[in-house]
């Protein structure tokens, strides 16, 4: 059922960046909405089996999205995306950081810079996300955290949600 949609995932350790490209079978405006409206973000942003919960949202330059990704045990992983520049519906830039429940950014953990772009590809939309860290050490810190959280180890069986949709 899933069409053959482009998905590139490129890690550049020298530059401490991740470049993720993905094609979606939808018009650019709709994909843009899914990235920039919290009621839609809540429905897809967290990887399975986690869910997303928005605490506050202000999609404006200088505004931010404060949200949690919640694992099946109820553990909340709080994050905050700060919006730096916004060019509807071409792209936006900002910073991702780890916070507590109150939204205060944890100064001990690295923030990553995000550059999102949306382009037409026929009837489809191509998105590109470039995640950059200041230094290899920052990327390393995040790698270590991911392992401690165990977030990465529990992700599997993605197809079940496709089944859910068709039902």
């Amino acid at each position: 059922m899933k069409p053959d949609l482009r998905f590139d995932f490129i890690a550049d350790m020298q530059k401490s960046t991740l470049t993720v490209r993905r094609e979606f079978a939808a018009k650019r405006q709709l994909v843009w909405d899914c990235y920039t409206k919290c009621e839609l973000l809540d429905q897809w942003y967290a990887p399975k089996p986690l869910t997303t919960k928005t605490k506050s949202f202000d999609f404006n330059e200088g505004g931010h999205w404060h949200f949690a990704m919640i694992d099946p045990n109820g553990t909340h992983y709080w994050s905050r995306t700060d919006y730096e520049t916004i060019t509807p519906i071409d792209g936006y830039t900002g910073y991702d950081g780890f916070t507590d429940e109150t939204g205060v950014i944890n100064p001990d953990l690295p923030r990553s810079h995000i550059n999102m772009t949306f382009t037409d590809k026929g009837d489809h939309t191509l998105t590109e996300t470039v995640v950059s860290y200041n230094a290899p050490e920052d990327l390393q810190t995040v790698i270590d955290m991911g392992m401690e959280d165990g977030m990465t180890s529990t992700l599997e069986r993605l197809d079940e949600l496709l089944v859910k949709l068709t039902a």
Partner: peptide, 25 residues
């Protein structure tokens, strides 16, 4: 393994978005 895990996270997230886009359309 770490990069594979990251890829899995993004893939899962995008699968969710595929589902949502289909519903919205």
């Amino acid at each position: 393994k770490w990069f594979d895990d990251q890829r899995t996270i993004w893939a899962s997230r995008f699968d969710n978005l595929d589902t949502l886009l289909t519903t919205l359309q």
